[in-house]
Design a protein around this nucleic acid. Structure first.
Length: 269
DNA sequence: AACGAAACCTGCGCGC
DNA sequence: TGCGCGCAGGTTTCGT
């Protein structure tokens, strides 16, 4: 469940269930989910969840003087269960809270990562410090200066979290359709005006997708029993050979840097 | 410094 | 039915 709207949705639900609750037990089933440089997760025992924020696609769990940084990557999910419920396949880390809730990190492909840090180390953390701004915080001129030096497709630039954070493959496909930009165009050929269009579309689409609690493409991907509903608004993503809602030509599918790219050759110049 | 490909994993759907 | 291949909402690492 991994782009910004889905991560924000997860944060909102977990906050409702767990804010101000204390961790009473931690069980690590598959340790490789935890980054090597991480502090020992057992430092969280008896700590209270003070806050839960997001930054780009990261979840930040604030526990008194520590922060647990969580990235879901491709298929990470959090399930809220009762401690008595038996473990199911792919549940890798289990946190028990004092309100009789078992928070389970579930990840079929084991790509997700957890890292525990001291609160004061957040801004020097390797993952977090490299992150670019989310679309709503982008400075158009700075962003334009960056992309106009890049000889790589705009699609690839928008997926680069060091340049702009929060967009993933679905929303980049949708943003480029909305802003009428061909995904193969090189950064250095994008005008300042087009840059502005891209950012405006990004803000608009991420906001709407967040409002609809994200996009659920495969039912098994739903976490926490929360299903997103933005899929009904997708215009190109996963729509190969369907008709473009603007011009009725066929939506095409191609690969850009190994990622499936859906676009309308007629509308996206 | 910037770029692309490979690596990290598992499960599903498709064609034969 | 079974096998092999390609595919999946992401990031990091490695080689050029």
């Amino acid at each position: 469940m991994p782009e910004l709207p889905e991560v924000k949705t997860v944060a909102e639900v977990l906050k409702k269930e767990l804010l101000n609750k204390k961790i009473t037990n931690i069980k690590i089933i598959y340790p490789k989910i935890i980054k090597e440089e991480s502090l020992d997760l057992n430092l969280l025992l008896n700590k209270k969840l003070d806050n839960l924020k997001t930054k780009g696609k990261f979840l930040l769990f604030y526990f008194e003087d520590y922060i647990l940084i969580s990235h879901l990557r491709m298929e990470g999910k959090y399930f809220i269960k009762k401690p008595s419920e038996e473990l199911v396949k792919h549940e890798h880390i289990i946190f028990t809270f004092n309100n009789n809730i078992s928070l389970r990190y579930h990840d079929t492909r084991k790509f997700g990562r957890l890292e525990l840090i001291k609160k004061e180390d957040l801004n020097k953390n390797k993952s977090i410090s490299k992150l670019g701004p989310e679309p709503k915080d982008i400075d158009i001129d700075l962003f334009y200066q960056t992309i106009k030096k890049r000889n790589t497709p705009i699609k690839t630039i928008l997926l680069n979290q060091e340049i702009i954070s929060g967009l993933g493959n679905i929303y980049v496909n949708e943003v480029l359709f909305d802003s009428k930009i061909n995904p193969f165009r090189k950064g250095l050929n994008i005008t300042r005006e087009e840059t502005k269009e891209i950012i405006n579309s990004s803000i608009k689409i991420l906001d709407k997708a967040t409002k609809y609690k994200g996009t659920t493409i495969k039912s098994y991907t739903s976490s926490l029993g929360v299903k997103g509903n933005y899929q009904q608004f997708l215009k190109v993503h996963m729509k190969e050979n369907q008709l473009c809602p603007n011009c009725n030509n066929k939506i095409r599918k191609a690969k850009i840097n190994g990622r499936s790219t859906y676009y309308c050759k007629t509308c996206q110049k």
